[in-house]
């Protein structure tokens, strides 16, 4: 595979990324770039390494080798660099990971107050705006335990957005949801994409990928097998492995 050149304008640059868990090589030399405002969807079977790849992008997994640049700043394994990068890279998890001891509003203002040193009144105002945007203004004083899955994930998105990140990572954001609740989360994500957010999304929602993605990347055995526009990947996949994977999905 041709080595991706470091593009001054790109938001994410990944060079020769390798990640091992013990003796098992989960990511086997990934090169990728993501441009500002681009929505990239990662697809692939479970265990293909797509979630691990995503978790490398904000330093939740340490790299075995390779290089990641976020907005031209290299991700280094020290707490200062990690904190700095994570302020700019929001992440949404499959299991939401809301803080159960804090109300919805407290969940959202926690990091702006303690990391960005925002005054509490300003943080609350911003949080309420975000909650209106995801349609949950009236839930601000509820605890996460009282929310439905779809509501919880929308709060988690608002919580990540409260840090005003340049990039948003989504790790299978709808996989833990009941089918009827998937739509409300996807529509929030779609809105975010329309607002110009740079997004990297791991998902099994092929409908979302077709509709919203600028580019689809198919990962198998820790490598990028094929990438291209949704039309290309879903309409006319070139690689046998991509064809097999997509074939299995449609049955």
């Amino acid at each position: 595979m041709e080595l991706t050149k470091i593009n001054e304008k790109s938001m994410i640059n990944v060079n020769c990324l390798v990640k091992d868990f013990g003796n098992h090589r989960v990511i086997n030399g990934i090169n990728a770039t993501v441009s500002p405002g681009e929505v990239v969807v990662l697809i692939g079977a479970s265990g293909s390494g797509k979630s691990t790849f995503l978790r490398c992008l904000n330093g939740l997994e340490a790299l075995t080798s390779g290089e990641i640049l976020i907005d031209s700043v290299p991700l280094e394994r020290n707490s200062k660099s990690l904190k700095e990068i994570r302020r700019q890279v929001g992440m949404v998890f499959q299991q939401f990971n809301l803080f159960p001891h804090l109300t919805v509003l407290e969940n959202i203002i926690e990091a702006p107050i303690h990391v960005l040193n925002r005054p509490k009144s300003k943080a609350i105002k911003d949080a309420q705006e975000l909650l209106s945007k995801v349609g949950l203004f009236d839930k601000q004083n509820c605890y996460p335990g009282t929310l439905s899955g779809g509501q919880g994930q929308r709060v988690a998105i608002a919580r990540a957005l409260a840090m005003q990140p340049k990039i948003m990572l989504f790790d299978e954001p709808t996989s833990a949801l009941d089918p009827e609740l998937v739509g409300e989360v996807l529509s929030v994500m779609k809105q975010l994409a329309e607002d110009g957010m740079t997004m990297v999304v791991v998902t099994h929602e092929m409908g979302f990928a077709k509709e919203v993605a600028d580019r689809v990347i198919f990962i198998d055995e820790g490598r990028i097998v094929e990438e291209g526009s949704p039309t290309q990947i879903f309409g006319n996949p070139q690689e046998t492995r991509t064809q097999t994977f997509l074939g299995r999905l449609s049955h």
Binding site: K83, V89, G90, M91, F99, A111, V115, L116, R159
Partner: peptide, 9 residues
């Protein structure tokens, strides 16, 4: 993980 990914130390 959620807390770290929000930039909290």
């Amino acid at each position: 993980e959620a807390s770290l990914s929000l930039g909290m130390g």
